[in-house]
């Protein structure tokens, strides 16, 4: 059996990649994908602990995270499309005003 530390390190690496991508990327789509990466990094640690302790609540929590992430993805993509229609750019540095 693969020790839990492997899963946790992989989860940490995924989360760190997400954070770095979130901070350094300018394209909104990429930032959005980085957020998904962070979520899934966390999801991985949830299922790893669930398998380790034979406890279902971790698995159930992952489903909730996926559902929320799916909902968030629809809303987020809708906002991105709306921003692109008015600004004609996906560069976040140029999206610095609250009004459209």
């Amino acid at each position: 059996m693969v020790p839990i530390s492997y899963y946790l390190i992989l989860s940490g690496i995924l989360f760190a990649c997400g954070v770095i991508g979130f901070l350094i990327k300018r394209n909104i789509i990429t930032i959005f994908m980085s957020i998904e990466l962070m979520l899934n990094g966390v999801n991985l640690s949830f299922v790893a602990f669930a398998a380790q302790w034979h406890h279902l609540s971790g698995q159930v929590f992952v489903f909730f995270v996926m559902v929320v992430a799916a909902a968030e993805a629809t809303v987020g993509l809708a906002i991105i499309i709306a921003v692109f229609r008015t600004r004609e750019t996906l560069n976040v540095d140029q999206v610095n005003l609250l009004k459209l």
């Binding site: 954070v19 901070l23 610095n96």
Partner: peptide, 13 residues
């Protein structure tokens, strides 16, 4: 509060 999203993200991180 510059209005720059990435700087907000930086502060958050």
């Amino acid at each position: 509060q510059s209005g720059n999203v990435r700087s907000y993200a930086g502060w958050l991180a």
